[in-house]
């Protein structure tokens, strides 16, 4: 059985390698991705429409804002699903761990973490806020922010981290992120545009339609950042304790 699976995988791998030679070479201007009218439209108009230097963020948060909104919802639902499956499992789970981790928080580790956690969080905020000028954005900034809480949980214990960011608040913050995102979309709907058509926000804010799109992208990224931060930490808290929310790693 194992040998048959190996041969099958080898065949599929060779097939994929053989098919890969039909791909256009990297950076080929004639490739379908480069020559499509959509790509050239984005390249020509991003700067004019939105004044955002980072084209990737403009496509992600503005032109394809609907897609990114539901990506955020997917992250939220995934976190909620992990939490509720592990929480609602059989109560008579007596399975002991193979390794019982029993330790005092180490002096050197905790003091190092004390020093670097603020730096990580400032960097996460920078990545989030600077996402439409340089690489980065809500997802990356949110993950870095969530990682700082995970680091606290790893170096002290989960209780210390949960005291700073309780699991109930995690899901409130995560839902708030989606509300921010959808709220910006609905606001532009009520102002006469389409859902997530940020240019119409210029009617109530003293900015040009281009700058309205620029700033709305920041708002949307903040929403994404909220959700991702909270869900990353909730995922770690659920998975490391098997849903019990006490004595983590």
């Amino acid at each position: 059985m194992k040998k048959a699976a190996f041969i099958l995988i080898l065949c599929i791998g060779l097939l994929l390698a053989w098919a890969a030679k039909d791909f256009p070479s990297w950076g080929d201007p004639q490739s379908p991705a480069s020559s499509s009218p959509v790509a050239s439209h984005f390249i020509a108009n991003t700067g004019v429409d939105t004044e955002v230097p980072n084209m990737v963020t403009a496509v992600l948060a503005d032109y394809r804002g609907f897609d990114t909104m539901f990506e955020t919802v997917v992250v939220f639902i995934a976190g909620l699903a992990v939490f509720s499956i592990l929480r609602g499992g059989p109560k008579n789970r007596t399975r002991d761990r193979e390794f019982v981790v029993d330790f005092e928080p180490d002096l050197i580790v905790t003091n190092t973490v004390r020093l670097i956690v603020p730096v990580i969080q400032i960097f996460a905020l920078y990545v989030l806020a600077h996402g439409h000028v340089s690489p980065g954005g809500g997802f990356q900034g949110g993950v870095a922010m969530g990682a700082s809480f995970i680091l606290i949980a790893l170096s002290w214990d989960l209780k210390t981290a949960l005291a700073r960011f309780p699991i109930e608040r995690c899901f409130t913050v995560a839902a708030l992120g989606i509300v921010i995102y959808a709220g910006i979309g609905l606001l532009s709907l009520f102002l006469g545009g389409e859902f997530l058509d940020y240019a119409h926000l210029a009617k109530i804010f003293p900015v040009s339609p281009e700058m309205a799109r620029y700033h709305a992208m920041l708002g949307v990224e903040i929403g994404v950042g909220f959700t991702v931060t909270a869900i990353m930490f909730a995922l770690y808290a659920s998975l490391s304790t098997d849903g019990r929310m006490r004595d983590g790693l």
């Binding site: 761990r97 997802f139 990356q140 870095a144 995970i150 998975l239």
Partner: peptide, 28 residues
């Protein structure tokens, strides 16, 4: 660079921690 950044934070960073957290509740 955007994709690289995501890969570094999500792929190399958080998902490793989550995987190890899960392994500690399984047979190693």
């Amino acid at each position: 660079v955007d994709v690289a950044f995501t890969e570094a934070t999500v792929g190399a960073g958080v998902s490793t921690v989550v995987l190890i957290a899960t392994v500690f509740n399984l047979k190693r």
